[in-house]
Amino acid sequence: MVSISRLRDPRYYQVAVLATLLGIGVLALDFGIHWQNAVAILLTAQAVQYLGTRLAGLPRFDPLSALITSLSLTLLLRTELPLLAVAAAMIAIGSKFLLRVRGKHVFNPANVALVTLMLLSDRAWVSSGQWGSAAIGAFGLACLGFLVLTRAKRAETTIAFLIGYAALLFGRALWLGDPLSIPVHQLQNGALLIFAFFMISDPKTTPNAARGRVAYALLVATVAFTIQFIFYQPNGPILALILCAPLVPVIDALLQGTHYRWEKPDAHSSAHPKGV
């Protein structure tokens, strides 16, 4: 019974998909990820998670979320300096324990680490173009990602973000009179899909109510578009998420919903009393 309940935890699928993507990135796309950085991130994340668990007096040490954050950071963060990789893992996991409102952490851990390092150091960056735009690859990513999401039962965040972002891109192309191959090319971006399926969808840092999540995703899409195509800065989605994250507690205060728990993905099903 233990093994079945474990398989219900969507994070196992998430770990599998992220590890697959990492494999593709390193072996097929030559991402130039340093193994030293990967190890540094992995170990630091687990150490900080353990320390945080002890200091916060949590009942048990859960390595899984820290592992997912480590994989996301390894996939997205580029740096030549292992020390920065260590700092990234500390910021990511530390933020989960330190920046909390009403029992939820405010920022997606990998997201806050990436943005902090990009702002504070000129030796860390995110290579959003390195996934290329091979349609088949993007499709594969989307399918794999969707599997994770259906298990996590929070697909509307991703869907709303992608639809909102795509609508803005196509709207821009129509307004400028550009050929549609341009917005299609902009959407065929592996980094964008990874963001949509693995970062913005994080159930721990999105609003509790479904309506709130859709509104939130559309807001992030609008801010991301503004950064990328009005201010012409790279990494629009990643920056947009950090800017919008402080609104989640506000949305939660306005719209009632269920707080997500990893171990019980069916927490809001009929087996439980409504409104909990």
């Binding site: 030559d30 000129d122 290579s127 173009g129 390195q130 290329g132 735009s133 090319h185």
Partner: peptide, 14 residues
């Protein structure tokens, strides 16, 4: 001033 330049909307390949 700092480091290598790459494209953000296409792959930059060595």
């Amino acid at each position: 001033r700092t480091g290598r330049v790459e494209t953000t909307n296409y792959r930059t390949v060595k």
